[in-house]
């Protein structure tokens, strides 16, 4: 019988690091520890409205985590396809906070910069928070422009008509609106990052 090759050392170390960071995130989620109660029933996958577009289903995500394959999870499109509708969370018979765990995985992926290839969905978060940082609020026109320029420039052209229609209907601002104390928001973000060491 052929012997099973051992997991290469660098991979094991990387997995251990990811695991430690992930478990730290889990500890901060109310009822986060319930992940260990998963019975692999698949209710999360069945109830998920977008699981059929995922490369790894929500149930498989927990299975892969247990098998020590966090990196594979982070490389999957799954965590960025989750629209956070919380269907899985309210239906899980074991009370697992699936949506919040997927958020923890998104944070881990962002922190470690491990993303699925040719699937830039995570870029929206970066663009969004940059608007928040500068204006204190979201400037939708710039958000759309920057996100599509960064990811799918052709889609920008396809959406110009819709953007104009929204402007005509008074439902899109041409100029940003900065809050009076935008500096307060900046100070909060900077201080929080300082405390977190990021």
């Amino acid at each position: 019988m052929p012997s099973i090759p051992p997991i290469p050392e660098p991979k094991r170390q990387r997995e251990a690091d990811l695991r430690e960071a992930f478990l730290k995130e889990v500890a901060g989620i109310p009822a986060g520890e319930k992940i260990k109660n998963c019975i692999q029933c698949g209710t999360c996958t069945a109830t998920c409205p977008v699981s059929r577009w995922m490369d790894i289903t929500p149930r498989e995500t927990v299975a892969l985590f247990r098998a020590g394959m966090l990196e594979e999870i982070l490389e999957s499109r799954t965590i960025w396809i989750c629209a956070s509708c919380y269907s899985c969370t309210v239906r899980c018979p074991m009370g697992i906070q699936v949506t919040d765990l997927l958020y923890a995985l998104k944070r881990l992926a962002t922190d470690k910069k491990i993303y699925p290839s040719r699937f830039p969905a995570h870029a929206l978060s970066d663009t969004f928070i940059s608007s928040l940082y500068r204006f204190g609020r979201i400037y939708e026109l710039e958000l759309g422009l920057r996100y599509f320029l960064k990811t799918h420039p052709l889609k920008l052209l396809a959406n110009i008509g819709f953007g104009l229609l929204m402007i005509i209907k008074g439902r899109m601002a041409i100029l940003p609106k900065r809050i009076k104390k935008a500096n307060e928001v900046k100070a909060i973000i900077n201080r929080a990052k300082e405390l977190e060491g990021v």
């Binding site: 956070s84 970066d126 935008a182 909060i188 990052k193």
Partner: peptide, 25 residues
């Protein structure tokens, strides 16, 4: 008065403490 963006589903994807602090303002 002078409320700011809550961060929506976006900031929670990046950092929890920052996300919660921004919303907590």
């Amino acid at each position: 008065k002078d409320w700011n963006c809550c961060g929506a589903t976006m900031y929670v994807s990046i950092d929890k403490i920052v996300a919660c602090s921004v919303a907590a303002r």
